[in-house]
Design a protein around this nucleic acid. Structure first.
Lengths: 119, 119, 119, 119
DNA sequence: GTGGTCTAGACCACC
DNA sequence: GTGGTCTAGACCACA
């Protein structure tokens, strides 16, 4: 797992995003057992409190489940993961289009630029 | 000029963005004299120092020129403005594509979703 | 660190210069952790905001790196420091020669005067 | 006469420097009649008050003499001009050497860099 | 405790 | 009146 941080957003937010991405991409597949908070914190070179905060938010969203005695696991709910992927995509697209439109680009232009960027 | 702020980003950053957009959109055309710091601060319902901070950063980027005792002006450099629009667009597109790709979407899918969103 | 100010230049500019010189001279070596804004402000007998302004400009130049909650550090990039020393020197030399030449001195004369001054 | 201004120093100071340089270089030779404040102000694209301030300081130093009815003249005192040239040169050299030495350059290095810059 | 942001209000040089 | 600087002091998120 690749942990690199920018400093324009709180680290725990960036941790959450990293986990989300790794779950969606399948790098962390359903049911996988996570390392301990302490080990994860060490791996990410982050304060354990920060890692803790990220994980508990992931738990709130339902992407991670805690079992008191045996540790934390990625949810088994495959539907949930697919749904989240869709939700994030829609949000990203809308944000993107809104920004581009306020820059004065038409949808056709935007698509063209994406086509070009592909190369 | 419409000043409304969210609270997820510092006000001075939002001010910078507002000015940028107004410059790009042509609402503030090249060479225009800006109102005084104090007046702009009043208009935005913001402390003069906050407005000053935003404006001096705009000056650092080269979008605004300060004449010490006569006021601030939008750059005359039309090229610079066009360039900035392009730069912002490219940055937005790349960010967007990177995110979408790490969500596992192919360019074709992305374009299709944009097409659909249009409606 | 010796903080004394003249009043022909803004304090924050003088602070920047002091830090630069201390970095170049090695008094603040690469990677060093700086004291907190508040402590530095006290040491320099200056308002924390003023110190902050100086430090954030040093960050813009890339001489200082900020870690959001753990403090500020001198860059680790030794090359950058050497480069900066060189840049400042070149700028000073060019400024100096330009002035001397517009006073009507030839390079040979200038060098001779420097030689004499040495004694 | 070439009037271009930076904005790191007051304009009237820059005006004074420009006049000094032009006097020393001989572009304004001894005894020359200056244009009126108003015309000079127009030529320099500067507020007449600013030009006035510069000229009266030049008068204080004795480089310019005002004759109530017929206008302002560059001093006839050639010695004074030569002296001033020398003074400025010495000051510039000392400033320059002080700065270079605090950057850690030895006199020999400085001279070498000047030699190189010459090309 | 750390940096970051913001407000309020003052003073200054310059034009 | 203009921008620029500085102080004082408060509040916040983050670690």
């Amino acid at each position: 797992m690749n942990f690199t941080f920018s400093n324009d957003k709180p680290i725990y937010i960036q941790l959450i995003d990293i986990f989300k991405m790794n779950i969606i991409s399948g790098l962390l597949s359903e049911g996988t057992k996570l390392d301990s908070v302490r080990d994860l914190a060490i791996a990410a070179k982050v304060n354990p409190n920060t890692m803790q905060k990220a994980l508990s938010q992931l738990e709130n969203i339902g992407l991670v489940r805690t079992e008191r005695t045996s540790g934390r696991f990625i949810t088994n709910d495959k539907e949930k993961i697919i749904l989240m992927r869709k939700e994030i995509a829609i949000k990203e697209i809308e944000d993107f289009l809104r920004k581009m439109q306020s820059l004065g680009f038409k949808t056709a232009e935007i698509i063209q630029m994406i086509e070009e960027d592909k190369n």
